[in-house]
Structures are given as structure tokens and as C-alpha cells.
Simulated assay, not measured.
Amino acid sequence: MAISYESGTKLPMKHSYDGDYSSALAELRSGINQIDEQLIRLIAERFSKVSEVGDLKAIFHLPVEDLQREHLVLERALETAKKNGLSEYLTRDLMSVLMKYSKAAQAKRVRGL
């Protein structure tokens, strides 16, 4: 079901749903569920790479924390967020959490090798 929007707004036009908002809401939520699944798969893929980085850091006796790299990762994320109309605050929070858990995963790998 395609959704039509009121001119100049992000509000759905009432007549495009034929008064059945529950099915339109279910369809939108289904789309959100699919996106959530994709996000989780991508995060899992990211952490697979993070583990490999941790292994290399362990082999070459490198520190887990790399503030220069963290800065570059955050800057790239903020650029991408801006291009896509995403909040800077959300992006900073999201990347902060990802980097926190990435460093913890790397530290675990470094200690384990």
C-alpha cells in the first residue's frame, strides 16, 4: 500500500487509507521491523570485523584504544548522518555506544590471545 502525504507535510492523507489506519500502521511497523533486522545483521557484521581488529592488535601488541581512529569514525558517521537528515545527537549517541562495545570486544580478544 503506497502512502500519500498531505502537501508540504509528513502527515498521511486520510483518504489514502480509506479510513483503515490499522492496516496502514501494521504495514509501516512491518517495514520498521525489517529495517531493525537489517540493522542488527549489520551490527553483527561490524562486530565480526571488530573482533578481527582485536586479534591483530593482540598479535602486534597494539593498544585497544585509538583516539585518532575514533575521531575519524565519528566524523564519517556525522557526515553520513547530515547527508541523510539524521540528528547529530542521535548519531553521536549511537556511535558512542558502538565504539564503547567495540573497545570492550577488542579488549576481550587482546586478553584472550
Rank of each mutant, 00 (worst) to 15 (best):
M1P: 08
M1R: 00
A2N: 14
S4H: 07
Y5D: 13
E6T: 06
E6G: 03
G8I: 04
T9C: 03
L11T: 15
P12L: 08
P12T: 03
K14Q: 12
K14V: 11
S16W: 13
S16K: 04
D18A: 08
D18T: 04
G19I: 06
G19D: 06
D20G: 05
Y21L: 09
S22Y: 12
S22I: 14
S23L: 05
S23D: 05
A24K: 01
L25A: 08
L25R: 07
A26K: 07
A26R: 11
A26F: 10
A26M: 14
L28I: 12
R29Y: 06
S30C: 04
G31W: 08
G31D: 03
G31T: 06
G31Q: 04
N33T: 09
Q34F: 05
Q34N: 12
Q34P: 05
D36E: 13
D36M: 14
Q38H: 06
L39W: 11
L42F: 11
L42R: 05
L42H: 13
R46Y: 15
R46Q: 10
F47P: 00
F47M: 07
F47D: 05
K49A: 15
S51N: 12
S51Q: 15
E52K: 08
E52G: 09
L56C: 10
K57I: 03
K57P: 03
K57H: 07
A58N: 07
I59L: 04
I59V: 13
I59T: 11
F60C: 05
L62K: 10
P63L: 03
P63M: 04
V64C: 04
E65Q: 14
E65V: 13
E65K: 13
D66G: 02
D66E: 05
Q68G: 15
R69G: 10
R69T: 15
E70Q: 11
E70C: 09
H71K: 11
H71R: 11
V73P: 00
E75Y: 11
E75L: 13
E75F: 05
R76I: 03
A77P: 00
A77N: 00
T80I: 12
A81W: 01
K82W: 02
K82S: 14
K82N: 08
K82P: 02
S87V: 00
S87G: 02
S87A: 04
T91H: 01
T91F: 00
R92I: 04
D93F: 14
M95W: 05
M95S: 02
S96A: 04
S96E: 05
V97G: 02
M99G: 01
M99F: 00
M99P: 00
K100T: 14
K100F: 14
Y101R: 04
S102G: 09
S102Q: 00
A104N: 03
A104C: 07
A105Y: 03
A105P: 00
A105K: 08
Q106H: 02
Q106T: 02
Q106N: 09
Q106V: 06
A107F: 08
A107V: 12
A107G: 07
A107C: 09
A107K: 10
R109T: 09
R109V: 09
R109I: 04
R111Y: 08
R111C: 06
R111M: 08
L113V: 11
